[in-house]
Structures are given as C-alpha cells and as structure tokens.
Design a protein around this nucleic acid. Structure first.
Length: 276
DNA sequence: CCCCAGGTCAATT
DNA sequence: AATTGACATGGG
C-alpha cells in the first residue's frame, strides 16, 4: 500500500504504546488489542486480525479511508513540505482512543519520549486489564480514577499526578463527556479540554489531532517551533504567529503537515541545532 | 553537578 | 497581557 510506512507512522510522535520486536515488525497495544504489524515494502500483514476487527477497528485506527495521496499532492505545493513529505511519505495520522491519548499527552509535558512510554506502560500494568499474557490495556476512566495522586506518583508521573487526577474528576463528574466530543466544534473542544488542569494548548491540540480527527489543528511544540522558525520565519516567532501561518498556508490539513514536519525535524535535528 | 526533556501553572511585572 | 521560575524524574 502507498502512503503507509509503519515505522514512520509509529515513530512520528503521535502514539506511545508500540515496540519494534524484530526487523520489519512492530507490536502495538491499542483498542484493547495486541496487534503485530509486519511490513516488507508494500506488503503489510496485521496479526492477529480477523475481518471483523479489520473493519471495525483497524480501518479507522490507521485512517485507511482517507486518501493521503490527494492530501500530499496539495501540501507538496509548499517546497518545505514537499521535502518533508518525500522524506516520510508513509506517515498517517492514527485515530487513537481519546482517553488514553489525553492522559498520554498530559504525561508528555516537559518529558522525554522513552520515559513517557515507560510511565504509560507502568500505569497500564497497574490499573488496566490484562488482555493477553503479559500485555495490558490502557486503564478505563473508572479504573484510573481508583488511583490516588500518591498512587500515580508511584508510577513516576511526578508533578503531573494532580493533572491526571483532574482529568479523572472532570470526566467522572460528567463535566467532560467523552462520548459527546465528536459533536463539538474544534474551538469548543479545545476550551473543554483546557478546563482540565495540566492541559494547555499543545496537549489539547494533540488530543484533538490524534484522537478526534481534527486535522486542522497544528500542535506546536519546541520541535515544530524550531523547524517553522528555521524555514518560514528566520527569526523568533511566537506560537500565535506560527499557528496563523499554518492555518493560512496548510489550511484544514495543518495537522497532517505538522506530522511530516515533526518527523523531518526529529530526524534532521542537526539542521536546527541553534535552539532558541 | 548541571542541563534538558512533545508544557503548563501560578505568581509577578 | 506578557514574562518567569517551579515542577518530578532520569539520562547524558
């Protein structure tokens, strides 16, 4: 399949519960399943996977009903994106579970990726269901709500413990209805998510892009800031300026552009060594 | 030891 | 409204 590279999809920073188990094969824990994805060139094998799971879970999860070739063609009119897209043409935006995505990106703040992955594993093992020998689903709202702030600190989340408690409280109390998120406009949703303590613009945008199909948002972290400044501004630019630029030039596909740029920036970080 | 890591909060100006 | 330090933890 074109526009599908499992390494790029998983390593472009949108999800955390995956591991390379051998050459050409990744193991993903998602949707309460353990899934192995083997890819050799354009041949992709999902296992274990029956037809029902494929239709009900993985088409949506891997965003298979979206035509990335068309989007890439449009975005490639920008010369920087053209380069980034050629570099990582197999990226797709996953449609992850919102609750897991929310907690994961709360944990991600001021943290590094190996440690984020580690913490999420610990939380899953401690509070989630065992779905297969040695593998655990990410805990449900109810399950995670049983963890106290102190319990969470035991999982090494540090100062983010109170943020996770806040998320649990808002969802449990009904102030944030996860089932009704689909019906909200993007600005409404952003505000609703930011009512959670520890959720600012960046985390909210990640949750919206990676679990709510809001492809118009442009999560702007230090990497994106760096690459945008380097290629489009040549000077210190504020988050606001960067957002305005992205929304103007990448339009309703800004989030997809962000993923190409993020991957490109991470894999070519020497270009951007002049940290601001 | 000091610095930093997918940011955000809260205090201060 | 904009700026600044603190925040847990672990690795370089």
């Amino acid at each position: 399949m074109d526009s599908f590279n499992i390494e790029q999809i998983l390593e472009c920073g949108q999800c955390f519960r995956f591991q390379k188990v051998r050459e050409n094969t990744y193991r993903i824990i998602a949707m309460r399943r353990v899934l192995y994805v083997e890819q050799i060139d354009s041949t992709i094998i999902l296992s274990p996977c029956n037809e029902q799971d494929f239709k009900q879970l993985w088409i949506r999860y891997f965003d298979l009903d979206l035509d990335y070739n068309r989007i890439k063609k449009i975005l490639s009119q920008d010369s920087v994106l053209d380069k980034a897209i050629q570099y990582a043409s197999g990226i797709r935006i996953l449609n992850q579970e919102t609750w897991e995505c929310l907690i994961s990106f709360i944990i991600s703040q001021n943290n590094n990726i190996p440690r984020i992955k580690q913490i999420i594993e610990t939380i899953s093992i401690k509070y989630g269901d065992c779905i297969e020998q040695g593998f655990y689903a990410f805990p449900t709202v109810t399950q995670l709500s049983k963890a106290s702030e102190e319990d969470l600190r035991q999982c090494k989340v540090g100062f983010r413990a109170k943020y996770i408690v806040s998320a649990c409280n808002l969802v449990t109390s009904g102030s944030l209805l996860l089932n009704e998120l689909d019906d909200m406009t993007t600005p409404e949703l952003r505000l609703a998510l930011m009512k959670i303590k520890g959720v600012g613009p960046k985390v909210a945008d990640c949750v919206m892009l990676f679990s709510q199909r809001r492809q118009e948002v442009f999560p702007t972290d230090v990497w994106i800031k760096r690459i945008m400044q380097h290629f489009y501004f040549e000077h210190e630019a504020s988050i606001i300026e960067i957002h305005q630029y992205a929304y103007e030039y990448f339009e309703n596909r800004a989030g997809i552009a962000q993923q190409y740029l993020f991957y490109y920036a991470m894999r070519n970080n020497s270009i951007f060594s002049n940290k601001q």
